[in-house]
């Protein structure tokens, strides 16, 4: 019998998050297409539409736990609800999107089972009956394949953009509603406020096109040529860690092992040498274009198209040409 796989659902801007859908699709693949082995589990204040959305991405069944205290994620309540449910139902594998909260939940949940989570996986595969997770260590300088030997459910967190979003299909699953078991008394953690990142346009995770800048920009003002090219392509602006650390642009723009892993159709890297830690976050792009002064820059090792030259000449030329072609 196929091993039972749970996918913990997280909400995105509209409905179930893209990362959750990617993982549901992957879980379905790991189950050999037997969707009865894949269960979507959702905690929240309400679960309207959740069952259908999770089923459309590959879940054969959906369990929802709703309570006003589950409106915003807190480890105390989510670990309590999910660990009690897992104690009853005994899933073999639990997959969670490796967002900030998702990684915290994965580690806490796995510890509550007496084991540990394999974090930040970019690939999952069976070796016989054993699920292995592939993940980056040492800032992307090493890739480890990790086995989870925990007692009970094996928890893995999965980096967003590691797998394609599955085509929507199926659906029509009605959720099983379960009353969550939550700690009594006052909550130890209270979420008071959420302040979205300035400039709601930093949508790196969902962008089809990303134009990124690195140290080759010389100074913060250099980002203007990046922004111009991104604007004409309708894309988002990314950055290397070096320029984020230098304060030229805010952290939410950072692509790489310690920033975001992105999977756009087109990634244009300008003035980025290609430190391993950056490559770890963007080699997943479908097509990569690199522009750099140094013909030996490691970025050219992962690029599909490379241009050696001055980005302050190349970028405006690309902007002009794309404008001409795209806007007639």
């Amino acid at each position: 019998m196929a091993q039972s796989i749970w996918v913990i659902g997280q909400r995105g801007k509209s409905g179930i998050s893209r990362a959750t859908r990617e993982i549901l699709g992957k879980a379905n693949g790991l189950a050999g297409g037997d969707s009865s082995a894949v269960t979507g589990v959702y905690c929240g204040a309400s679960a309207d539409g959740v069952a259908d959305e999770m089923a459309q991405s590959g879940a054969g069944s959906v369990i929802t736990m709703t309570d006003p205290r589950l409106e915003t994620y807190t480890a105390d309540f989510y670990v309590s609800a999910i660990s009690h449910l897992a104690g009853d139902r005994k899933p073999d594998v639990i997959l969670i999107a490796a967002t900030a909260d998702g990684r915290e939940l994965a580690a806490a949940l796995a510890t509550s089972f007496g084991g540990g989570a394999v974090q930040d996986c970019t690939e999952l595969e069976w070796d016989g009956d054993t699920l292995l997770g592939t993940r980056a260590c040492f800032g992307g300088n090493r890739t480890a394949v990790v086995e989870n030997c925990s007692p009970g459910a094996k928890v893995f967190s999965v980096r967003p953009n590691s797998f394609p979003v599955p085509d929507a299909g199926g659906g029509g699953v009605s959720a099983e509603e379960v009353a969550p078991v939550l700690p009594e008394g006052d909550p130890r953690v209270k979420v008071l406020e959420f302040i979205p990142d300035a400039g709601g346009t930093i949508n790196l995770l969902d962008a089809d096109v990303i134009v990124s800048g690195g140290r080759g920009l010389g100074k913060a003002e250099g980002f203007k040529v990046i922004q111009d090219l991104a604007d004409v392509l309708g894309g988002a602006v990314g950055a290397s860690r070096a320029v984020v650390d230098s304060g030229w642009i805010a952290y939410p723009h950072q692509v790489g092992q310690t920033g975001k892993t992105v999977k756009p159709k087109l990634y244009i890297a300008l003035g980025i040498s290609g430190a391993i830690q950056h490559l770890a976050g963007m080699r997943t792009a479908d097509t990569i274009v690199a522009v750099n002064k140094d013909e030996n820059a490691p970025i050219f090792n992962v690029a599909h198209y490379g241009i050696v030259g001055d980005l302050f000449e190349i970028a405006p030329a690309l902007t002009a040409k794309f404008r001409e072609v795209l806007q007639g």
């Binding site: 084991g115 540990g116 292995l132 890739t143 030997c149 992962v302 599909h304 030259g309 030329a317």
Partner: peptide, 23 residues
């Protein structure tokens, strides 16, 4: 509870097509 099966440098690069000329 977590055990590494392997620990290697990341996969080798793909081929890159270089484009040359004026901007």
């Amino acid at each position: 509870p977590t055990r590494m099966r392997s620990f290697d440098p990341p996969p080798p690069p793909s081929g890159c097509e270089m484009i040359e000329g004026t901007p």
